[in-house]
Design a protein around this nucleic acid. Structure first.
Lengths: 229, 229
DNA sequence: CCAAAAGTGTTATTGATACACCCATGG
DNA sequence: CCATGGGTGTATCAATAACACTTTTGG
């Protein structure tokens, strides 16, 4: 590898932890690498930050390449900079996580990858580079965020039931929550709008459908809402 | 400036927000820059990360150069990467904050600075580069940390009174707290050891002295203690 | 009529807030 | 004896946690 000593002595990259929700399970989107090192292994999607590109635009670009999505929730989590974290040179990487709605989403292999695939977050046990550590930090950050603010609606379809929301919270926190307490608390926040419709075609009592009140959400975000579930 | 187009197309740096406490006021250590750009202006101490240096070691190095201190509390806060944040080239910077005990501490001008000086955190209104933004993020991080875990003992002398602790919290949070409630709550955590001594030479009833129980602290940190004041 | 998930209230416990006076010392 | 900060307890209110049964639909 001529890498370390040639054009590229040091560089910065971003790595993206893209979360989705499927069957009440928290998923993460990985790519099958088409480049050395770790070619053909499943890893976090990432790329070098271009010299004329704002740092924050790099994860946006990757997200758009892989999913076609723009304007998704995106949060910077931590920067990883061990000298030997990349076997081919000095690369400091900034870890971001984002939340996307998996409905109608067909991630496509982009230039950086030969394949993309969703994986169960809590079943992964290792990843190349320090990607496993990055993933763990992002999970913890997501869990903390979800506890203190009503985040994660990005993971739900446009109209959803209260049980969907609870499933989401249980998937993210990876634990069960009390139904009555959850509903009481969540409804009292006034973030949900009753759309006056019900589920159809389900083999049980159909649930009320809600949508999400964006304006209230922004208000809460602005003054740092304290949400503890 | 030949900077932008010559050896240095892009680089990463760290910037350090070093907090101290003096007269119940939260302070931050700034340096008077001895280099372009912004020569002779007061700014956060920072430096490029060396190619063979772990990211986390860079703020440690700076801290040691300026204060002689090692093993101080250090937390990575955020990475700043606007294309134009540095006028001479592309520099992405990682912001760290640390907490140091100002007693017996004589910060010295190091290679990066002609002078160093403590400033009142809440009186600063602007700084060069995006340092003001970095400072603000670090303040918020410190405030959140202090709210949810018993952090900040690094800012106190080895033996202190309960009022010292309250002063610390008030300085960090920049607001007044109820004395009885504070004491009740703080003592109930069991983090303080009564050293069975009292202040001397004060013109009022002398206060009990405490020291800090490190083992309990580590225990709390490990399981993510929930401290809300 | 059975299976499945939706929906609903009350009680007990815990934690948060608000608040005012006496105590020990130095000067 | 005065000024200064140290030290203490209670009552109210709000939030959290624990807990079980009825309802509506499809098959």
């Amino acid at each position: 590898m001529p890498f370390r000593n040639s054009f590229f002595k040091s560089a910065f990259s971003v790595d993206n932890v893209i979360f989705g929700l499927e069957n009440s399970t928290l998923k993460v989107l990985l790519i099958k690498r088409s480049e050395v090192p770790f070619i053909n292994e499943w890893a976090l999607p990432g790329d070098l930050v271009r010299v004329d590109e704002d740092l924050r635009d790099a994860p946006k670009r990757i997200l758009k390449e892989l999913t076609g999505l723009q304007d998704v929730y995106l949060d910077q989590v931590h920067t990883f900079g061990k000298v030997d974290r990349h076997p081919l040179g000095r690369v400091i990487t900034v870890g971001y996580y984002s939340l996307v709605n998996m409905d109608n989403l067909k991630p496509r292999a982009a230039s950086i990858a030969s394949k993309v695939k969703w994986f169960d977050v809590f079943e992964l046990e290792s990843l190349p580079f320090d990607h496993f550590e990055i993933l763990q930090k992002c999970i913890r950050r997501l869990q903390n965020s979800v506890r203190e603010m009503p985040i994660g609606f990005e993971l739900l379809p446009e109209r959803f039931t209260l049980s969907d929301v609870q499933d989401l919270y249980e998937a993210v926190l990876n634990k069960n929550l009390d139904k009555r307490n959850f509903r009481k608390k969540f409804l009292s926040m006034g973030l949900l709008i009753d759309v006056k419709k019900y589920q159809t075609g389900v083999a049980h009592r159909p649930a009320k459908l809600y949508k999400f009140e964006t304006s209230k959400y922004e208000e809460f975000k602005a003054k740092g809402f304290n949400f503890e579930i």
